[in-house]
Amino acid sequence: MRSVIDILDLSVDEINSLIDTANDIIENPAKYQKACEGKKLASLFFEPSTRTRLSFEAAMYELGGHVLGFSEAQSSSAAKGESVSDTVKVVSYYADIIAMRHPKEGAPMVASFKSEVPIINAGDGGHNHPTQTLADLLTIKREKGGFDNLTVGLCGDLKFGRTVHSLILALSRYSNIKFVLISPDELRLPDYVKQEAKNGKIEFLETKSLEDVISTLDILYMTRVQRERFFNEADYIRLKDSYILTPEKLKTAKENLCIMHPLPRVNEISVAIDDDPRACYFKQAMYGKYMRMALILMLLGISVK
């Protein structure tokens, strides 16, 4: 029985196979309509989420399965003080697979120790969010054709952004990837992520200026710079506009740049860019559903001919 808690729980071959399945689902959705007939997904969301929960639920419905669960801790027995282990142990008797989001970091791992069915981590605090990374990888594959020889710019909050850390670790397993890290000093990528990325053998360029490097990028992954991450208001005000992507800043970018964002966006990408063909962030959210479908099939051991 297999669970996915961290993106690195999946080998490169498995990720490639998930991408192939997701692409096949996009091409031939009818083939998969009954793939999970009679199966149930428990969607255990101990904290609110829009995209992730709805995309997991849509994924299971599109596979012909059923969904049960809750969308906030208050409507579960966690509100009475039940442990994650007990909740999951019981739910695993009612469902075939569990997608779990929890504000406590490591909760899905604890769940996987007790569960009788596969657990998918749908986000644990600021720690891991592997299915977001799967969505990111499918987006890159479809937009760029592959993962090798890419220059990937990551912009904004690189310190606390869990999606950035997972994406770097996942991409660092491919050849000749170069990362350009664009952030204020306060929000730089932690050293341990750099060390873990292929044992420190990956090339990282660090800069504070998006304008200086935007012309070199194949992918620009934007994240939100959050006010609460700064120690003082003056620094926040000084820096916040540097990391807003505008049509002006895109003038020197490549024609085939792929602009990504895990969403929700607040103001870090100007709405004026939404119609630019290089804007991929809404497609990215759509691809997330297909990768979740592929992952559910893999973890349930279902293959569709």
């Binding site: 442990s83 929890h102 406590k104 490591g106 604890v110 644990d124 600021g126």
Partner: peptide, 12 residues
């Protein structure tokens, strides 16, 4: 880490 599951899960 105050956000770690060890802070709330019984006997973990």
């Amino acid at each position: 880490n105050p956000r770690c599951i060890t802070t709330t899960e019984q006997e973990l």
